[in-house]
Design a protein around this nucleic acid. Structure first.
Lengths: 262, 262
DNA sequence: CACGTTTACTCGTATAGACGAGTGGGCGAG
DNA sequence: CTCGCCCACTCGTCTATACGAGTAAACGTG
């Protein structure tokens, strides 16, 4: 095995009380930050680092696992460890549900992605009636059963978010909202046609690490959190007419809000 | 060593192709989700799990490291591994900068925390002039140097966020804004007194894993992401008069926004 | 009783070795 | 030349062992 190019990585400090695997992680992190390894580039293999630093393989793997947890690198079985490329982010503006955006024939996601030059897809559509969770019930005003609309969104083949809309049955049952494709303008356009003029939305945002199910659904790399967004739509009478629960891959999104100063 | 209470955890499935350490992590995760282990409660020790499952210690540690990465548990040297308690969250409402909240004598953070019954603190205050980063410069309209106000916020002794405000020198220099304590109502009140009537704010939100420096500053446990919020304040003439860069411990915050439907 | 010390238990760090499995290039057979 | 196989290299999983260091309770000494 050929040795590492000299100067690429330094030596360990045996006098330091910082653990060896942390020192190795520090060096790799710094090299990445300085651009010595670029996005998508392969890092030295475990064996090369074992050689270079004179440590055991588990020590090197521990160092890599730190960097994976930080979302800096990802390992590919049989190929190597790579600097994780930053995927293009999707910007969500706070006016994305404005009435003027609801006129077109396609869903907001499709329109937006097309405009950004990406290839959008919607996936695993499912519409069914079910029992409302405690949280959804509370938000919708103590309804027992709801219409649930689930779907997953992909950009250029990569899953970026999945969402479930919950609507009270007395509003949605038997309407186009209960159809897989609710028609132009999406369910908000249908709600307004049904006489529920929308007044405002409330969005709650959390960030956390994904559950294993979410890792699978969104094909998340290690070290990528999710943004959990719960939106409630209110009509002009103050009634909550929809709750939308969305989980997004945090490395694919920037949310943008405009707040009045008054 | 006394064995684990039977029924608490099951057996491994040797026929499964799921890795042993993943199976162990799955079992522990499920036990936690089902409430068999409550918040703050101690999980079985590594040695007990080694005994129970008949595997080596590294295998058990791998299982724990998965759960740590998910933010479900945290290890304490010499004590054990514990189910991570969910700290009380601070809700940030989208009207928190409304003019009516700016009348009081204290900063928004202090007022809010007092109301919620927590003990607030502000920390490591630093006010100085410095070169604007590329990003800040772009947001403020190509200014070269800025006044930077840094501070860290704590709730009940726990650091929850740190923030830096950047203001153009022609606005802030020589004003109370350049003082460590800008006075009642904070810098937004001062800006309005100086003739910059605030019109609106723009907030950009990202979530990601923390850098090592952020882990240190916010004393973050493993598996806790940060919310990165960049707010720009605009006056009625459309000029950006402040950029505030905030990094928050994601397990301590829920952000809440109200959007018009128009 | 009060206060150090011992001791057992905990997780943290590190080594050495083994085998499995995915990837991709090179080599040889056709 | 083309195709298939093999092999070298990669990370993934797992075992066994060792010592270090933090914690807390039991213990013993004064």
């Amino acid at each position: 095995m050929s040795p590492l190019p000299s100067g690429l990585l330094g030596d360990l400090d045996p006098t330091s009380d910082r653990a060896v695997f942390r020192q190795i992680a520090d060096q790799l992190r710094e090299a990445i930050d300085r651009g010595r390894f670029r996005e998508g580039e392969k890092l030295p293999s475990e064996a090369e680092l074992v050689e270079h630093f004179g440590v055991s393989r588990m020590t090197v793997r521990n160092a890599f696992s730190i960097l994976q947890g930080e979302g800096l690198v990802h390992a590919e079985h049989g190929r190597g460890v790579f600097v994780r490329p930053r995927p293009p982010v999707r910007r969500l503006a706070s006016d994305r549900f404005a009435r003027r955006h609801r006129e077109q024939g396609k869903s907001a996601f499709i329109v937006e992605a097309d405009a950004a030059g990406s290839h959008p897809q919607v996936d695993s559509l499912e519409v069914k009636e079910e029992r409302a969770s405690q949280d959804v019930s509370a938000r919708l005003g103590s309804v027992r059963r709801v219409l649930a609309r689930r779907r997953r969104y992909l950009l250029d083949g990569r899953p970026v978010e999945f969402a479930t809309s919950y609507l009270p049955l007395d509003i949605a049952r038997g309407t186009p909202i209960a159809e897989p494709n609710p028609g132009p303008g999406g369910i908000y356009a249908r709600l307004e046609e049904l006489g529920h003029r929308l007044d405002h939305f409330e969005e709650e945002i959390r960030a956390r690490m994904p559950s294993p199910a979410e890792v699978k659904t969104l094909r998340l790399a290690a070290g990528v959190p999710v943004i959990h967004l719960v939106r409630t739509a209110f009509d002009t009478e103050g009634r909550a007419v929809e709750v939308c629960d969305t989980v997004m891959a945090a490395d694919a999104y920037v949310l943008s809000y405009q707040l009045p100063a008054t």
